[in-house]
Design a binder for these strands. Structure first.
Lengths: 127, 127
DNA sequence: TGAACATATGAGTAATCGTTCAACTGTTGT
DNA sequence: ACAACAGTTGAACGATTACTCATATGTTCA
């Protein structure tokens, strides 16, 4: 899905506005990164892991798995992803691995999203 | 993926901490909703649509498609999703449909996520 | 009425994602 | 050295996702 000048076959209604707005859009690269960050938060298992770390601080994989109701394998896979994107960090001690949140943005993203879903009166509309 | 009491076969290292944390985790339903909201923002096409609306205000589907480099069909599908979750809203006038952001949380989520990716020094680590 | 148009939508398809299973690494205690 | 353990990892499979194509709906203008 390249952002080509003429990717849309239809004629723009307000061509000036379109090209003006396009100059201010985030770069392709930035958009990709953003999408990846949000994608990390788009899974219930990972979300529960983050909520658990938010609440309980540093915890080992086994406890995280137990607290979030996942298998250890699933938790480990999930943590690996979060770690790769620097959302969580590990401290290793013997055979244990202790995970914790890497930065505070997560809590804010969390709270903002919660206030958003609090906004709506019910579930999603089916349009 | 039920949040069963014993979903994790491994013995918890700190059972007290685990069960204490679990009482404060968001409900299953809340987690699902959160994941859906973040999932909405996890796609480059939708992200570009939102960035465009953030920058350009109310715009018709055709211009949105042109500005974001998608086919009109793709844009329409994406807007439908965003609309179902009350992230954008439509105003119809004749055969045109003018879309705009439904609330301001989007901008904040955007900015927060951007500062997060600004944090890292490069792309994701491959662990 | 009929053609051009703006948008919406259903079906189909290719790609991505999350889980499980099984195997593997490295550590601890006997 | 051996077994139990905490965690990691790769492959495989089922589910979900986002696109394209074709078609449908409703609007405007001649």
């Amino acid at each position: 899905m390249p952002l080509d000048q003429d990717a849309c076959q239809a004629q723009a209604v307000d061509a000036g506005r379109v090209s003006s707005v396009r100059r201010f859009l985030p770069s392709d690269e930035a958009v990709q990164d953003l999408a990846q960050v949000f994608g990390l938060l788009a899974d219930p298992g990972r979300l529960r892991l983050l909520a658990t770390l938010l609440e309980g601080g540093e915890m080992c994989v086994c406890d995280l798995a137990a607290a979030t109701g996942q298998s250890m394998s699933a938790a480990s896979h999930a943590l690996r992803l979060l770690r790769a994107h620097r959302v969580v960090k590990v401290r290793r001690s013997g055979r244990m691995a202790y995970y914790s949140l890497a930065d505070s943005h997560v809590r804010m993203l969390f709270d903002l999203a919660i206030t958003h879903i609090g906004h709506g009166e019910g579930g999603p509309d089916d349009v």
